[in-house]
């Protein structure tokens, strides 16, 4: 391999690594706050990318029907809970958030010439459709068993992942899509050519990471999420309910996942089931950080990206084997350095 190729591979690795870093951060966040190992994170990537592709093709994305369906389920669950607690006043708010919003969005999308919208607006549409699925998913799937052991939550995550992949096939078909690049610019930096999309991916990741850091460091809601992660009981005593923290966390995770999908789809073709492997690579990184450390997870993500890029050159057939086998020594090292074995039923 010559230097030129190494530079290209390095660039690929860092681009993908930046995406994995975002996903890893979301996974660490979700686990820390809710103890959920968020396997469906990858599906948000695929849904984001493919919803954008549908919008770009001028088709009404089927995910909006999922949004409506999930809204109905949440409205029924929350509505019944409110009635049982004798708080019928809350019904209007519940209906507005869970039914009126999806319906309004549906109407708007039907009225708009989707394919002719500017790319930025198309991205916004994808976000408006896919991101609310995050908190709704928390409400439907996880909130009823929020106190269950981590292993049960994990199995539920795998089940939710499976259902979302199946729905993805139903919504988007088996065909893969690539969305147009955000920028066709090319920069000559010394001996290498950097594509505009790479710059977009890396810069967006950095901006998002900084924004998250500010959110957690400066705002009371961000602090509330950190507090929940550190001490759930303590947080409850401050009036920070696990349900609120869970929905907020899943909102962030869905936002990160959808944005990652939007960013990566100009680089690789995304199929309905591509999210899983992308998400798992984020997982490898998150586990390098012990599902606890954000900076180590981000660093691990870059490492995973580079490892993947270089192994695809040297042993392309074994690319996935190498990346996923990496996780085992990391896991062993992690569990040897963590001390609490007991009481993790």
């Amino acid at each position: 391999m010559d230097f030129q190729i190494a530079l290209i591979l390095g660039q690929d690795g860092i681009t993908n690594g930046a995406i994995y870093a975002l996903l890893a951060l979301a996974l660490v966040l979700v686990f820390a706050v809710t103890r959920v190992i968020f396997i469906p994170q990858g599906e948000f990537v695929a849904y984001g990318a493919l919803t954008l592709a549908m919008v770009g093709n001028g088709v009404l994305p089927a995910t909006v029907w999922l949004l409506l369906g999930a809204g109905v389920v949440v409205a029924v669950l929350d509505g019944m809970a409110a009635l049982r607690a004798g708080q019928s006043k809350r019904l209007i708010a519940i209906m507005a958030v869970n039914l009126a919003y999806p319906l309004a969005l549906l109407g708007l999308l039907k009225a708009m010439p989707l394919a002719e919208l500017a790319l930025a607006l198309q991205v916004l549409v994808a976000l408006l459709i896919v991101v609310p699925l995050g908190p709704m998913m928390y409400r439907i799937v996880y909130q009823p068993i929020a106190e269950a052991p981590v292993l049960v939550l994990l199995i539920v995550s795998v089940a939710a992942h499976l259902a979302m992949v199946g729905l993805g096939l139903l919504f988007f078909g088996a065909e893969g899509y690539r969305t147009p690049a955000f920028s066709d610019a090319r920069f000559e930096v010394g001996p290498m050519t950097v594509t505009g999309q790479t710059v977009w991916v890396v810069m967006s990741s950095l901006v998002l990471i900084v924004a998250l850091a500010l959110f957690f460091g400066r705002t009371i809601y961000g602090k509330a999420l950190r507090a929940t992660a550190i001490n759930r009981n303590g947080a409850r005593l401050m009036g920070i309910s696990p349900a609120l923290a869970g929905k907020l966390t899943f909102f962030l995770a869905a936002l990160i996942g959808t944005l990652s999908g939007v960013l990566i789809s100009p680089i690789t073709t995304i199929y309905y089931d591509s999210g899983f492997l992308i998400g798992l690579k984020g997982f490898v990184a998150a586990i390098i950080g012990g599902l606890a450390s954000y900076p180590i997870a981000a660093g691990g993500a870059i490492l995973v990206g580079l490892l993947e890029a270089f192994s695809s050159f040297w042993a392309s057939a074994y690319k996935e084997v190498i990346v996923f086998t990496l996780i085992i020594p990391v896991l062993v090292w992690r569990s040897l350095t963590s001390h609490h074995m007991e009481e993790e039923e």
Binding site: I287, A317, E320, T325, V332
Partner: peptide, 28 residues
């Protein structure tokens, strides 16, 4: 001997990893 030491949720994540790896090995 590598993965059973893994505590709690790390073990199932480990099984996903070697499950995928062995599958890709069969295929390649």
């Amino acid at each position: 001997s590598l993965t059973l030491k893994l505590s709690g949720h790390y073990l199932p994540l480990g099984t996903i990893a070697w499950g995928i790896s062995l599958y890709f090995l069969f295929g390649t």
